[in-house]
């Protein structure tokens, strides 16, 4: 059995998780603590990938990520290589697709922090940026971890968006979920079962971890 798709899935999940946790933290701060016009529209837009069919999201991403699309053209101008049907392309697609899964647990954790702690930090001389790193982040560790785990397992299971944006290029964009689909189509049930056997317990363990963290966040245990 070729383990490359599994390795690609893990690599994609890891990269998406790291980038998204860093990206989502300031975005969540913006949503929770800053008042601005059109906030509810902005929040709904960020949550949209959660409810859109992956093929719809994949279709729009495909449009903007081709060399003629805005993001694809920009990417090519900066890196000299195309974005579509590449590993970088599926990372970008995963970032968009999993963004709401990163934001939601973080938002719950940030909202739980007593605002007076932030006020106390300001009075003690901290700028909003320092207060974010010294007060918000340390008090939202469980939420950040839950967010990272959720993004990781969600990315492991991605199919539709990746197929639309990355296709199925072995060693480049053919991740585990696509490899399983292709194995089933080719009646290679044994290969499909082996990959499923690896993915199911990994996802299950991560979910258990999320539940424990969420309980700790709720009950403070």
């Amino acid at each position: 059995m070729d383990l490359t798709p599994l390795w690609l899935s893990l690599k994609l999940a890891f990269m998406t998780t790291v980038i998204l946790v860093i990206m989502a933290a300031p975005l969540t701060y913006l949503l929770v603590y800053i008042r601005f016009a059109g906030k509810s529209f902005f929040e709904a837009l960020l949550t949209l990938p959660m409810v859109l069919p992956p093929t719809v999201l994949g279709f729009y991403l495909l449009l903007v990520m081709t060399p003629q699309g805005k993001i694809g053209r920009f990417w090519e101008a900066v890196t000299g290589s195309p974005l579509i049907f590449t590993f970088s392309g599926i990372v970008v697609a995963s970032l968009v697709y999993s963004l709401p899964f990163a934001i939601q647990p973080m938002k719950a954790a940030f909202e739980k922090i007593d605002r007076r702690l932030l006020e106390s930090a300001y009075v003690l001389g901290l700028s909003p940026m320092s207060a974010f790193f010294k007060v918000v982040i340390p008090n939202a560790v469980n939420g950040l971890t839950a967010s990272a785990i959720l993004v990781f397992i969600h990315t492991l299971g991605e199919f539709g968006v990746i197929l639309m944006v990355g296709g199925s290029i072995p060693g480049e964009t053919k991740v585990a979920s696509i490899a399983i689909y292709e194995a089933v189509e080719a009646l290679r049930y044994r290969d499909a079962a082996m990959m499923c056997l690896i993915l199911v317990p990994v996802s299950y363990l991560f979910l258990l971890l999320i539940n424990r963290l969420t309980k700790r966040q709720i009950y403070g245990a």
Binding site: D114, R116, L117, E119, S120, A121, Y122, V123, L124, G125, L126, S127, V135, P138, N139
Partner: peptide, 15 residues
């Protein structure tokens, strides 16, 4: 942060 004052809050606001 620029007023340089001390504030003891009504409720406990220790980190």
């Amino acid at each position: 942060q620029d007023r340089h004052l001390g504030y003891v809050f009504q409720e406990y606001t220790l980190f």
